[in-house]
Nucleic acid binder design. Structure first.
Lengths: 164, 164
DNA sequence: GAATTTACGTCAGCCTTGTTGACTTTCCAA
DNA sequence: TTGGAAAGTCAACAAGGCTGACGTAAATTC
């Protein structure tokens, strides 16, 4: 299997090569979401819940509007998801102390358990893919993905990456 | 020099590194779909239409059931999209000659024009990302994505990759 | 102190795109 | 000739996007 793209071939980026990359993104994203989707399905949640859980876990105490800008959805859309998560006792919403208009979001113990289950599954696939592809592939993977983001998304991504 | 298939650096895959990969996928996929989404919006189509157009263009004369297995949706869902594309004169459906139960799908000239517009936009972003990331990154990118697919999706992907 | 802005929540309604279930038509193949 | 596969259609429903409008509390500005 001749995996051609080497050195000088960058100048010869054919439509065919680019199309392969496009289709790879399409099929890989399906795999990327498949495991969490299966877990979420049995408890009547969807990807929207997963995303909220992920980023609340990532930045405990984050505000609603911060979450909105990360997820890129409307507050009505996020609120619907958030409400069920709070009702079900997975997320806790706390009125801000310095600014009482803000709501700070945290995962409860129950929320942390689900987050664990979801991210374990997703990490397992990512780990397997990294192992199969090898060390060099990993950094290339991340470089291309970063370059593919819109500037605004890259900003969000880097802010998270550094540790918030 | 870095031969190790399961080199020790791989053993140091921290949860943090894996999480970064997961978030990179999330944000990059948004960028990946952003340009086509903008084009589709003005003509009242969605991603489902784009996917159908892409794979019909990729495999002219493909059957409905073949498309179903590639897209991984129900026939009812695909049919709704396909019907509008046929009505709007972007896709042509031909009764099979060898097996008349099958419908073979082709893009019309009008369909080809839209496909061009969509894939030009998507390729432009992919090309820019490849250029920014560099040659080695490109092969790593594809390797990790392929490893991330479900076996069935990988089969579909490779079948397409080889051509047909 | 009043007016405005901000952050959040909520109601109502719409759209796309996914789902299941039931039914029909066509037509190949055993 | 009959069973079953391929395809299409109708109906109903759900998730999760969206817009618009409205309300409330708190912060900020004038």
């Amino acid at each position: 299997m001749p995996e051609t793209p080497s050195g000088e071939s960058l100048l010869f980026l054919t439509d065919e090569q680019l199309r392969k990359g496009i289709e790879a993104m399409f099929f890989a994203y399906r795999g990327f979401t498949a495991d969490p989707d299966r877990i979420l399905e049995v408890m009547d949640y969807g990807r929207a819940h997963h995303r909220a859980i992920h980023f609340i876990h990532r930045s405990p105490g984050t505000t609603v509007s911060n979450l909105l800008s990360i997820l890129g959805v409307t507050k009505q859309s996020l609120n619907r998801v958030l409400r069920t998560l709070i009702e079900d006792g997975l997320v806790r919403s706390e009125k801000g102390k310095v600014d009482a208009r803000e709501r700070h979001l945290y995962l409860t113990d129950k929320g942390l358990i689900l987050e664990r289950e979801l991210s374990d599954a997703q990490r397992a696939r990512m780990r397997a893919a990294y192992r199969a592809a090898g060390p060099q592939a990993v950094s290339g993977f991340r470089q291309v993905l970063e370059a593919m983001m819109d500037p605004e998304m890259r900003r969000q991504y880097n802010r998270l990456k550094e540790g918030g």
